[in-house]
């Protein structure tokens, strides 16, 4: 797609009508957010490369960063793609354990041995405790109390799980971050700064010392920058803080199939592979949706954090939300306001 400018330095804004959006419908969007989505802190709608709608709530502004929870996973996906493009990782079929030679396997750990990067990207690796009969959930609080997160995660891979079954797992994505470090020599945050953030104008994230690994430091109000585990691995499944405008930049990079100005930041092939529709409706750490003839892929995080890309409409929507337990589904915003605002 030909662009008349790139938002590397600054995003430009435009009248909705000038890029084919109905301003009336967008003011409905504002009303709906205000009345029904009390935990949204910021939202930006980008059409054809221009911001047509941008609002902040609860005293937030364009410069504020937000803890976007599992939206982090889609960034890890891009970083794996970049590492593969750079031949630092051979392929998605490389075995996970080949990156952790220090882990000693039992002879019977055949299942663990066969888990690949692809299994982790597509959430189809076998993981221990999601059996039907138990109240299965990932013990993330237990993870944060471990002295060595990566070892803990490798320990729980395999047993009782079934390879190939879709099973959303945050801990699995953390392993991908450790793989990036083993493959590139940089932690995922540093690798992102160098290969992803700097080229597209996302604020680079400096190292933040972890004072402790208490609940608030790992999941709560003390999360800042991009947190790391006790061994210094950047968290893979969550833990990134970022501005709404930077979220939109990342989505815009994907809309442009990885090309930014004259540079191919992420290969087209990787993006196509990451967002190809399948029966799980889940790509490489991207949620896929095909509804009413509109195909979209999204980075989604707890509390209703969203980067939604609709390639067919040249549209990116970024939503930053306070992470709370029960939230209203964000899709009605698209269904009732954003998509109807598109003028063909």
């Amino acid at each position: 797609m030909k662009r008349d400018y790139w938002p590397t330095e600054e995003w430009r804004t435009a009248d909705p009508a000038s890029v084919g959006m109905d301003p009336g419908k967008l003011s409905d969007l504002e009303l709906m957010v205000k009345s029904q989505y009390p935990n949204i802190n910021g939202i930006a709608v980008v059409r054809s490369g221009y911001i047509v709608f941008e609002r902040y709530y609860h005293d937030h502004g364009p410069l504020d960063t937000h803890n976007v929870a599992s939206v982090t996973k889609s960034f890890i996906s891009a970083l794996i793609g970049i590492a593969i493009d750079a031949r630092l990782i051979k392929s998605v079929d490389q075995k996970v354990l080949s990156f952790f030679p220090e882990y000693v396997l039992d002879a019977s750990d055949i299942q663990k041995r066969t888990i690949t990067i692809r299994h982790l990207l597509t959430m189809t690796a076998p993981i221990a405790w999601k059996k039907e009969d138990t109240t299965g959930y990932e013990p993330l609080d237990r993870l944060r109390r471990q002295r060595n997160w990566v070892m803990f995660i490798i320990n729980i891979l395999g047993r009782n799980g079934q390879t190939g079954r879709f099973q959303y797992s945050t801990v699995g994505t953390h392993l991908l971050s450790a793989i990036i470090t083993h493959a590139t020599g940089l932690c995922a945050r540093e690798f992102a700064n160098e290969r992803l953030f700097r080229p597209i104008g996302i604020n680079e994230i400096p190292d933040h010392e972890m004072k402790s690994f208490l609940l608030d430091d790992v999941f709560g109000k003390n999360v800042s920058g991009w947190i790391k585990d006790p061994q210094g691995y950047t968290t893979g499944g969550w833990g990134l803080t970022i501005t709404v405008r930077d979220m939109a930049r990342f989505g815009f990079l994907y809309l442009n199939r990885g090309k930014w100005e004259d540079n191919q930041i992420v290969s087209k092939g990787w993006i196509d592979e990451s967002t190809a529709m399948n029966s799980n409706k889940y790509g490489y750490l991207w949620w896929l949706r095909d509804e009413g003839g509109i195909f979209s892929y999204s980075a989604l995080g707890a509390g209703g954090n969203v980067i939604c890309c609709i390639p067919g409409k040249d549209l990116v929507v970024a939503i930053a939300s306070k992470v709370v337990m029960k939230t209203r589904d964000r899709w009605p915003l698209f269904e009732k306001c954003i998509i109807p605002a598109l003028i063909e």
Binding site: A107, E138, D141, R142, F152, N160
Partner: peptide, 29 residues
């Protein structure tokens, strides 16, 4: 630790190797 860490039926408390059963099936290769 919260009480869930002391329950073998809870993901926080179960032994991660046997998922809280205390035993498992094993194939002797």
């Amino acid at each position: 630790f919260p009480a869930s860490y002391f329950s073998y039926n809870n993901p926080n408390g179960m032994c991660i190797k046997c998922s809280g059963r205390g035993a498992y099936f094993e194939i002797d290769m």
